[in-house]
Structures are given as C-alpha cells and as structure tokens.
Amino acid sequence: MRWLIRLCILAILLVHSIDANSKELEEVPLSKFGAKTGPTLRFFYCYSCGYRKAFEQYVNILKQKYPELHIEGENFTPPGYKMLFAKILGTLKILVIVLIVSGVDFGLPLTSVWQWCISNRFYSSVLVFLLCNAIEGQLISSGAFEIHFNDVPVWSKLETGRIPQPLELFQIIDFHLGMQFSDMDVGKIKFHT
C-alpha cells in the first residue's frame, strides 16, 4: 500500500514539474541580437477546435503580402478556473487508472462499480481515460481565434463570433501599419500591398 501512495505522489509531482518546466521555457528572453525589429502579428487560437490549420493558412497568405511582418501563433489558454479543473481532472485520471490497474483493496465493502473495474481492468482503464479526456477537451476548448498587432488586440472571434476574412485582415494590418509609421517617411518603408 505504501508503494501505491508513493507512486501517486510521484505522478502528481511529475505533472507539476512538467508544467513548471514548460513555463520556464516560455519566459526565455530574446538577446539583443535576436530581437525583432519589425511589426509583430500574434495569433492566439484554440488548438482543440482545429484552428491551427486556419492559422497556418493565414501565415502563408500574410507572408506573401507582408514579408517583413513577424507572425507568431500559440494556443489560447482558457480562463484560470477551467485550466485548473482540467489539470486536476488529468491528475485524478492517472490516479484512478493506477488504482484500477493495481487492484487496490481499501478494506471497505466494494461497490459494484469498483468490482466491475477490478474485474475488467483494461476496459475500465480505457473508459476512464477516454471519458476524462473528453471532459478535459471540453474544459480547455475555448473557440478562440484572437489576433494582436504589436500586442494590441485587433480581432477577437470570442467577441465577433467569426474568423476574419483575408481582406478584412489586410485592411486591419494596413491601418495599423499606417498608424505606426504615420510620422515617418512612408516612402522609405517597403511593404508589399
């Protein structure tokens, strides 16, 4: 029984250490030589909704029209409480699967559900895994397709309910480029429009 408790604690620590390491990797600053000098267009999309393909199509279109534009994209993280519930559910999923596979007897009368899980370890583990993944997917699915120009929000699918058409995005970019370079000599800047 002690090995099971140690295994569960190890699994929880592993999940949290992976999360902490991924946050540390995200916060690596650019050096002076690697700093970007041009305007940046940043997309935040819902990966679980399938918007990564739309992002990649926009990158191809925008790179042809605006080669100097830096384009970045990443998954839109949902509000904190949904992400917290998804992480807790993921940890509980692993814990329950470990308990099912190990066949732990808690010394209490077994319920019919737990007896079935112990009798059918493979099927119950797969069932727990799939159900928890479906719930986690619903929790982290935001439906977002947000666009920021130099950290200024310029489009939000969450507010408008739709993804912008390429011509709309071109107009937005042209407007913001015009605003950014209005006090400079526009003749010296070569943007392909």
Rank of each mutant, 00 (worst) to 15 (best):
F76M: 11
I140H: 02
M83I: 10
T111L: 13
G80W: 02
P79L: 05
I118D: 03
G143I: 01
V104T: 07
F129N: 15
F106V: 15
F106I: 14
I118L: 08
A134P: 00
S119A: 09
H70G: 01
V104D: 02
W116Q: 08
E146Q: 08
V126S: 04
V128M: 04
H148W: 11
C117A: 15
N133V: 03
N133A: 07
E74N: 15
L127I: 07
V128Y: 06
I135N: 07
C117L: 06
I100V: 05
P78Y: 13
L84E: 02
L95G: 01
G137S: 11
P79V: 08
G107L: 09
Q115I: 13
E74W: 05
R121D: 03
S124L: 04
V104W: 12
H148C: 11
G143F: 00
F106R: 14
I135W: 09
V113A: 14
F76V: 06
G137V: 07
N75S: 15
L110G: 01
H70L: 11
K82R: 13
K93N: 08
I94P: 01
V113M: 08
L95W: 03
D105E: 06
K87E: 08
L130N: 10
V101S: 03
L92S: 09
E68F: 08
L89T: 07
K65V: 10
L99P: 00
S141L: 13
I97L: 01
I118M: 06
A86H: 02
T77D: 13
K93S: 06
W116S: 10
I100Q: 00
K93C: 07
C117T: 07
I118W: 06
E72T: 14
P109F: 14
I140S: 05
S141H: 14
V104A: 13
E74A: 15
E136K: 13
I118A: 05
F106T: 14
V101Y: 02
G137Q: 04
F129L: 04
G103F: 07
D105G: 15
E68H: 10
N75M: 01
R121V: 02
K87S: 07
L99V: 04
C132G: 11
L127K: 05
Y81D: 04
E72F: 13
K65N: 11
N120F: 09
W114I: 12
F129W: 08
T111I: 14
G80Q: 09
G143Y: 00
G73N: 05
V104G: 10
M83R: 14
L99Y: 02
L131C: 14
G73F: 13
D105P: 08
Q115G: 07
G137H: 05
P79E: 02
Q138T: 10
C117H: 06
I147S: 00
L84M: 11
Y66R: 04
V96W: 01
P67K: 00
H148A: 06
I100R: 00
F145Y: 04
G90N: 10
W116Y: 11
G73Q: 11
G90C: 10
L92V: 12
R121F: 03
L89V: 01
Q64A: 13
L69Y: 03
E72R: 14
F76L: 05
H70Q: 13
I147W: 00
G137W: 03
I97C: 01
V113D: 03
Y81V: 05
K82Q: 08
E136Q: 12
G90W: 03
